[in-house]
């Protein structure tokens, strides 16, 4: 099996851009866009270069007219939707529902809230540091994973990632950091390793259509071009608004549920929210939002 996989890898290494990530099965990768993780969201400069239109609210206001131009709307990176201070959409309702759920669960045992806040009941600003490496658990933990873990450990209750109640609590948890710049800690070696794994996944071609995330989301790919009715945007700044209320599907979605939906469209085996590979991909994506404020609740 290994031999069979290696031979074509050697033969096609130069052709398919594989081999840049080392051994293992013959994998094809989209060419590396050489993102510098330490630049955070500013890595979009020289990448899609659209950040000039959406970096701040003032930038968005100044370029608001792009929203009405079909060929250029993608440059706003959908951030113009964050300017709609509409308090009716289900993203906002989820904050209240999530808060009510947390209250209810904390009433059963206050340790639940202390577990969410890692020792304190105050969640303010804390979500901005996620995903992070949890030394006690020995793994990368996302906000949704923390919620699942705390419900199980403190309350013996199943609140699996991807379940609406988990996502609603996540929206509430993250809304407590709204406006706080995202700061995934790259000085933690375990986080850096997860970033590198997520980076490899971002470029790896998968599924029946042989697409990578990068096939649509790096310069030179489909990004900025029409893909039938859609125009794929930059991955920078994207993780900041998840979980979000997705208007095209009429549901709240965590970023990992979004990965799964993308994979279905790419005809790739979707993974369950909470899968370690999706956690790595979330680390990669969130590092690309480092320095950009948490923007939850939101609609897209």
């Amino acid at each position: 099996m290994l031999k069979r996989a290696l031979l074509p890898a050697l033969a096609l290494g130069a052709l398919a851009g594989c081999g840049i990530f080392g051994g293992g099965p013959h994998r094809e990768h989209y060419p590396d866009a050489r993102i510098d993780p330490f630049k955070g969201v500013e890595g979009d400069v020289g990448f899609s270069d659209t950040i000039q239109y959406w970096r701040t609210e003032a930038d968005l206001q100044r370029h608001a007219a792009l929203a009405e131009k079909p060929a250029e709307q993608w440059k706003l990176n959908w951030k113009h939707m964050d300017l709609d201070r509409i308090e009716l959409h289900p993203g906002h309702l989820a904050v209240d529902e999530g808060q009510a759920l947390v209250k209810k669960l904390a009433a059963r045992d206050p340790a639940f809230l202390a577990c969410l806040g890692e020792g304190s009941a105050d969640l303010k600003g804390k979500a901005a540091a996620y995903p992070k490496f949890d030394a006690a658990l020995g793994r990368i933990v996302t906000v949704e994973d923390r919620i699942e873990h705390c419900a199980k450990r403190v309350l013996k209750e199943d609140l699996p990632q991807g379940k609406p109640s988990n996502t609603k609590i996540s929206v509430y948890f993250k809304s407590q950091s709204a406006g706080t710049p995202i700061g995934v800690d790259l000085s933690d070696g375990n986080v850096m390793e997860a970033y590198r794994r997520g980076e490899e996944l971002f470029y790896r071609k998968t599924g029946q259509l042989n697409f990578a995330c990068a096939s649509c989301h790096v310069p030179g790919s489909i990004m900025g071009h029409k893909l039938r009715g859609e125009t794929p945007t930059t991955p920078f700044g994207d993780a900041a608004h998840y979980p979000t209320y997705r208007t095209p599907v009429g549901a709240l979605e965590s970023i990992q549920e979004r990965f799964a939906r993308c994979h279905g469209q790419m005809r790739t085996q979707a993974l369950k929210p909470g899968d370690p590979a999706y956690a790595d991909l979330e680390v990669f994506m969130t590092v690309l939002s480092n320095g950009y404020p948490v923007s939850v609740p939101s609609a897209r």
Binding site: T206, G207, G264, T268, A270, L271, A277, D280
Partner: peptide, 13 residues
């Protein structure tokens, strides 16, 4: 949900 497990995916496991 269609099954695409005959093609490469991102899973570690």
């Amino acid at each position: 949900v269609p099954d695409y497990s005959a093609f490469p995916c991102l899973s570690h496991t």
